[in-house]
């Protein structure tokens, strides 16, 4: 199935959960990224049981804390 991650088209073999997607995308610390699926933010507690579906538009938003 085809999905979009941070604006780029990607193909993945089967339906997976956000937790699995984070592993696939090599996100080491899921606490440091905010996940948005089709304009909605997903609660960290629901990563385990939220399935990514064909056509989903996914954004990973990373913390950036510098300024000085």
């Amino acid at each position: 199935m085809n999905i979009k991650i941070n604006g780029e088209n990607r193909e993945i073999e089967k339906e997976i959960t956000i937790t699995e997607l984070l592993v696939l995308e090599k996100v080491k610390m899921p606490e440091t990224v905010s996940v948005q699926v089709n304009d909605e933010f997903i609660d960290q507690d629901s990563y385990e049981n939220t399935k990514i579906k064909d056509g989903d538009d996914i954004n990973f938003l990373y913390f950036m804390g510098g300024g000085a």
Partner: peptide, 8 residues
Amino acid sequence: CVFDRPPP
């Protein structure tokens, strides 16, 4: 709304 709380 975007980042719920500070990272660890």
